[in-house]
Amino acid sequence: MSSLEIKNLHVSTGDKEIVKGVTLTINTGEIHAVMGPNGTGKSTMAKAIAGHPDYIITEGDVLIDGKSILEKESDERAREGIFLAFQYPSEIPGVSIANFLRAAIQARMAEGEEIDASAYYKRLYQKMDLLKIDRKFTARAVNEGFSGGEKKRSEILQMAMLEPRFALMDETDSGLDIDALRIVSDGVNSLRGPNLGILLITHYQRLLSYIVPDHVHVMIDGRIVKSGDKSLALELEARGYDWVKHEFANA
């Protein structure tokens, strides 16, 4: 078992502090949902953990199995097992999905070691079938001209191929219709297992009826103000965020 420890994390962009001291431990095998209204720092936290250069960690630490990853570049963190599923994935013109994933897998191999192309494609097609992605998709440039649903499925496909230890899924449900949401959720559920820890960022309960979390955290104004099990999500759905904000203000 591995663990991703977020310890008293403070993150700023520009001069503004967005994340104001989050402490959270995710073990492989667990799914943690982080919920909260827009603009409370959920995405900022995920991007900072993945090493985005615009998000500055001013205090605290992030550790994998007790070792800090903050000195590492974002590509090194990815090879350590962090995967960020983007809310708005970038387009990479001219680079096919197949070549993109190949480069990512090659980067995880020892120097001098080469990808077995036929095994690679076999595995790629298997995962694509699972996510109901047309095989012609592999020749298309990464995210270029993709619909919202295709972009999200492509993120899950990458996650399936790269087999991270910890996936940070940033608003994976946004922009998806109900069918796409079901396909994406099925994909995530199929990856669920003892070797993967997931941090699921969302502001709707809807996703959590498809991907059932082990733990639910509520983030407001850069802090986790309440944690509980999946029933907390249902309570939020019924009562909104205001009661938590209120409770927090009175604390």
Partner: peptide
């Protein structure tokens, strides 16, 4: 960042 976030 997108490319690096995939370990490339």
């Amino acid at each position: 960042f997108y490319l690096k976030s995939r370990g490339i």
